[in-house]
Amino acid sequence: MTEPVAPSLAQPPLIEAAGIHTHYGASHVLHGIDFSIRAGETVALMGRNGMGKSTLIRSMLGLVRPSAGRVMVKGHDMTRAAPHLIARAGVAYVPEGRGIFPNLTVRENLIMAARAGASGQRDWTFDRVMASFPRLAERLSHGGGQLSGGEQQMLTIGRALMTNPDLLILDEATEGLAPLISREIWRIVGTIRQSGIATVLVDKNFAALSTIADRVQILVKGQTVFAASAAQLRAQPEVREAYLGV
């Protein structure tokens, strides 16, 4: 008789990318990257500008076609699957620059995305998103383009939650936001994480992520140069200086 295995280890990772190579035209952006995240985990994907963080995310989401490598979503090969199918497998994406629909109202931005999650869960409803983002509740009939940067970010996160994901990918969640607003966003990300949704946080700044992230992976010129726990990175200021310092 075999020993029962802990459920989180028995389940395949939410996303598992192996040996990803991606080209933009003639330029070779990613040089064989591995990446994975399991249910409930928070992984920080870090690196300076132009090191391939967003390209890796986009390659995993089907928005960019990797030239080599494999992307598994919950154990299914979805390497060249259409982006909407990957999303429907339970992956939500908050892109850099946020990607709200400025010609739709706040309410429309949210309800157009509403659906049950990959395993039928409806944890995140319109009302729950309203309760989590009271600032949005006050601006439901505003056009998406009339919101401040911070409100737009809340709207994109709220919209992603409306799809009831198992994994939320946030690309540069606080880029260009005032410190006070940034703290508010990180507080919300913390709440999402506690609700059991796994998160990938793409960022340049370790200070904000050090207490949230379980693991950190650092990219330099399309290659992984560091992959370990957040605690290990905290203990190695020279690594931070070398790969993340300005």
């Binding site: 928005l63 259409a82 909407h84 157009m112």
Partner: peptide, 12 residues
């Protein structure tokens, strides 16, 4: 306005 974002929300 943003085809890619619509896809990323799981819409065909």
């Amino acid at each position: 306005v943003n085809r890619e974002m619509v896809q990323s929300l799981g819409i065909d």
